[in-house]
Design a protein around this nucleic acid. Structure first.
Length: 278
DNA sequence: AGGAATTCCTGTAAGC
DNA sequence: TGCTTACAGGAATTCC
């Protein structure tokens, strides 16, 4: 599942292939992928002929500024990936969107489960979308411990759930939030409002290092290889994860077996020794 | 308004 | 072997 480090890896890889170039043609291959628009042809019509100015990112969203003050938005959802290839390359199964650039390689989105989407927004549409309600970016704009503590203190939801809430903080998903909580020594079901300023500070101080390591290793490619880098290589961070996907295996710090529990209908992995219960 | 449940979707794996 | 079922989960939506 692509999270901030995976999306940032994609952003860095496609940036030089898009910026300054023009969209020669574009196609939505699955209507659900353009579900933010009334007509899926809106995406195609708005993109064609536009020049790319800047390839940016907010949380897990790729935000690509193009001519005409439009923002080309791509989200990879659960199973999406971006592929750079030549226009004549055989079309992979589950290709949901493609854009031919002039000059340069084409961009394709492959997304079996169609949780991802592509949109092209005017400034007004962007402002009215849920993107406008995203929290601060966890990598570029991480709030202070004091700010996080204040924002948490009235909340009863488990800290794991809050870290997944993109309106609170944008970029962490199920893998990286588990890794942050393990490094910080905080149990995932702890009530957000019950954490001390010192504990919030520990969480805060682990966010950027975990994301940095994920980015430097090209992100996490799971065994299903749903996420790959735009050149087709797999990310290498999986084997360095401390808790995610390691149920029953020894904690790298204390050798206790890693446990799995379900919080808000998703798996959470934690060390019962390093992360004391509520 | 916050928090929890539900929905979307398909490849994979487990179970009978 | 072949079918059915469970599972994975990001974000939007709905309900309480």
């Amino acid at each position: 599942m692509p999270e901030l480090p995976e999306v940032e890896t994609v952003r860095r890889a496609i940036r030089s292939e898009l910026e300054g170039r023009r969209v020669a043609s574009a196609r939505i291959c699955h209507p659900r992928t353009a579900r933010r628009h009334a007509r899926h042809t809106d995406v195609e019509d708005r993109l064609v002929g536009r020049r790319v100015n800047r390839v940016g990112r907010l949380g897990k969203f790729l935000l690509i500024g193009v001519d005409g003050d439009l923002t080309w938005v791509m989200h990879l959802g659960m199973s999406g990936r971006i592929s750079l290839c030549e226009p004549g390359d055989p079309m992979e199964i589950h290709t949901r969107f493609w854009a031919e650039m002039e000059p340069g390689p084409s961009l394709r989105m492959i997304d079996p489960r169609t949780f991802g989407f592509v949109a092209v927004f005017t400034p007004e549409e962007l402002d009215g979308s849920t993107l406008a309600r995203l929290g601060a970016d966890a990598w570029e704009d991480l709030p202070s411990a004091g700010w996080l503590f204040e924002a948490m203190r009235s909340r009863t939801t488990p800290i794991k759930s809050l870290l997944l809430d993109q309106r609170f903080l944008a970029g962490l998903g199920n893998i990286y939030s588990d890794e942050v909580l393990h490094r910080a020594g905080i149990h995932p079901t702890r009530r957000s409002g019950g954490l001390s300023l010192e504990e919030v500070g520990r969480i805060r101080s682990e966010v950027r290092p975990v994301l940095a390591e994920g980015i430097s290793r090209g992100g996490v490619s799971l065994d299903d290889l749903a996420y790959l880098l735009p050149d087709g290589r797999a990310g290498g961070f999986l084997e360095y994860l401390a808790v995610y996907g390691r149920e029953g295996l020894a904690c790298r710090s204390c050798q206790s077996p890693i446990r799995r529990m379900v919080i808000n209908a998703r798996s959470s992995f934690f060390c019962p020794e390093c992360q004391a219960g509520p």
